[in-house]
Amino acid sequence: MAVSKMPVTSSDHIQGDAHAPITLVEYGDYECPYCAAAHPHVKLVRNRYGRQLRFVFRHFPLTEIHPNAQSAAESAEFAGAHGRFWEMHDLLFENHERLGIEFLFAAVRSLGLSETELRDALAKGTYTPKVRDDFLGGVRHGVNGTPAFFINNRRHDGAFDFPNLAAAIDSQL
């Protein structure tokens, strides 16, 4: 159950080389404290492996326990539509305890984007289908909570810190 095919597509948010031998996929929720805690470790992993690693982030908002997770994910998509996904991604994880609408507006403003456009996109649900597709795809791929990491399609069931992630990656290099 922990191994599944999950092709990376052009609708994914990708950092790194498409030909890298390692693909690390994270399913995450911006309001999840465990995801936020893992965030700097993912950055360490990216720095450590450089061109050997491609990183993909997909949304898995647990909206029943995280009331701001859906709007946060849609805000990241909004920023992504303007080429600023990863900056918004960082801002959201770094502020995971205060992701109310005021923060989301302030965050897009800080990226030079329009909060009016964000408001309209959230109201219309412009990015709701993309977030839902990520979530449902994750369910079918064996996501069992957040964060969920997959290293070359294999779910990482160990701890989410740098040493454990690096050891799991090394075992596949």
Binding site: C32, P33, Y34, L62, E64, V139, N144, G145, T146
Partner: peptide, 17 residues
Amino acid sequence: SPVCGDQMVLYNQIRPE
């Protein structure tokens, strides 16, 4: 058990499926 990795929370979220 820990919040976000919790199995029951996951099933609750997936229940519509």
